[in-house]
Simulated scan of single mutants.
Amino acid sequence: MRIAFLAAAALLAGCSQSVTDYRQQTPVLQLDQFFAGSGRAYGVLHDWRGRQTLRFTADLCGEWQQGRGDLYEVFYFSDGRVEQRHWQLQQDSQGKVSGTAGDVIGEAAGQLAGNALYWQYVLRIPYDGSTLDVTVKDWLYLIDPQNLINRTTMHKFGIKVAELTLSIQQTDAGADCTDLKRKVAEVAATQGQIL
Rank of each mutant, 00 (worst) to 15 (best):
residue 29 L to N: 10
residue 154 M to K: 02
residue 84 Q to C: 03
residue 159 I to G: 00
residue 133 D to R: 03
residue 17 Q to N: 13
residue 30 Q to R: 12
residue 19 V to C: 08
residue 59 D to Y: 01
residue 180 L to N: 10
residue 146 Q to S: 10
residue 37 G to E: 14
residue 195 L to R: 12
residue 30 Q to M: 04
residue 121 Y to A: 10
residue 104 V to M: 06
residue 29 L to P: 06
residue 20 T to L: 05
residue 50 G to F: 03
residue 147 N to G: 11
residue 162 A to C: 02
residue 95 G to C: 12
residue 161 V to M: 01
residue 151 R to C: 07
residue 82 V to E: 01
residue 86 H to P: 00
residue 160 K to L: 09
residue 116 A to I: 01
residue 40 R to E: 14
residue 165 T to D: 04
residue 93 S to Q: 11
residue 145 P to L: 08
residue 92 D to E: 13
residue 88 Q to W: 05
residue 81 R to K: 13
residue 104 V to D: 13
residue 117 L to Y: 13
residue 186 E to A: 11
residue 178 T to S: 09
residue 54 L to P: 00
residue 26 T to N: 07
residue 180 L to Y: 00
residue 178 T to I: 03
residue 141 Y to C: 09
residue 12 L to F: 15
residue 99 G to E: 02
residue 102 G to H: 15
residue 59 D to R: 15
residue 60 L to C: 06
residue 166 L to I: 02
residue 89 L to C: 03
residue 171 T to N: 00
residue 121 Y to G: 02
residue 69 G to A: 02
residue 108 A to P: 01
residue 48 W to P: 07
residue 48 W to H: 14
residue 134 V to S: 08
residue 66 Q to H: 10
residue 72 Y to T: 10
residue 149 I to K: 10
residue 181 K to E: 11
residue 195 L to K: 09
residue 190 T to P: 02
residue 71 L to E: 12
residue 105 I to S: 03
residue 9 A to D: 08
residue 106 G to A: 09
residue 176 D to Q: 06
residue 88 Q to P: 03
residue 105 I to T: 06
residue 26 T to C: 01
residue 50 G to W: 00
residue 29 L to V: 08
residue 39 G to D: 14
residue 104 V to L: 12
residue 50 G to M: 14
residue 89 L to M: 15
residue 141 Y to T: 15
residue 171 T to P: 01
residue 70 D to R: 10
residue 127 Y to R: 09
residue 87 W to F: 09
residue 18 S to W: 10
